[in-house]
Simulated scan of single mutants.
Amino acid sequence: MSTTEILEKIRLIPENYQQEVVDFILEKKVKKTVISSKQRPLGLLKGKMKMSDSFDDPLEDFKNYM
Rank of each mutant, 00 (worst) to 15 (best):
T3W: 15
F24I: 05
G47C: 02
K63N: 07
V21W: 10
L42D: 09
P41F: 00
G43H: 01
L59C: 03
D53K: 12
T33H: 08
I6A: 13
I10N: 09
L7N: 09
I35W: 08
K38H: 04
T4C: 05
T33V: 11
L44C: 01
K46S: 08
P41N: 07
V22I: 15
S54F: 06
Q19E: 11
N16S: 07
Q19V: 10
E5K: 08
P58V: 02
S2H: 03
K38A: 06
Q39G: 06
S2E: 08
V21D: 01
K32Q: 10
V34K: 10
K29M: 11
K28A: 11
I10Y: 09
T4Y: 15
S52A: 13
S36Q: 07
E5I: 05
S36N: 13
M49D: 09
K32D: 14
G47L: 02
M49P: 00
V34Y: 13
M1H: 14
Q18P: 01
M49S: 05
T4S: 10
P58A: 03
K38W: 01
M51F: 15
S2N: 10
L59A: 07
L45G: 00
P14F: 05
K50F: 12
L12W: 10
S2C: 05
K50V: 05
V30E: 15
M51P: 01
M66K: 08
Q39P: 01
L12M: 11
L42Q: 06
F55N: 08
D61Y: 12
L44R: 11
N16D: 13
L26D: 14
F24K: 03
K29F: 14
V34P: 02
M66H: 11
K38D: 05
G47A: 03
L12H: 13
Q19Y: 11
L42V: 08
S37D: 15
K48P: 00
F24T: 11
L45I: 04
T4P: 00
E60F: 15
R40Q: 03
I35L: 10
N64I: 04
G43P: 00
Q18T: 00
E27G: 12
K32C: 03
S36E: 13
L44W: 02
L12S: 10
K50A: 10
D53C: 02
I35M: 06
S54L: 05
S36P: 00
K32A: 14
L7V: 02
F24Y: 15
D53Q: 06
D57K: 03
L45S: 06
R11G: 13
D57F: 11
T4F: 15
M51L: 13
V21Y: 14
V22D: 03
Q19K: 04
S37C: 03
K38R: 11
M66F: 14
M66N: 08
E27N: 09
K31T: 12
F55M: 10
K29S: 06
N16H: 14
T33C: 07
L12Y: 13
K46G: 00
F62V: 04
E20M: 08
G43F: 00
L59S: 07
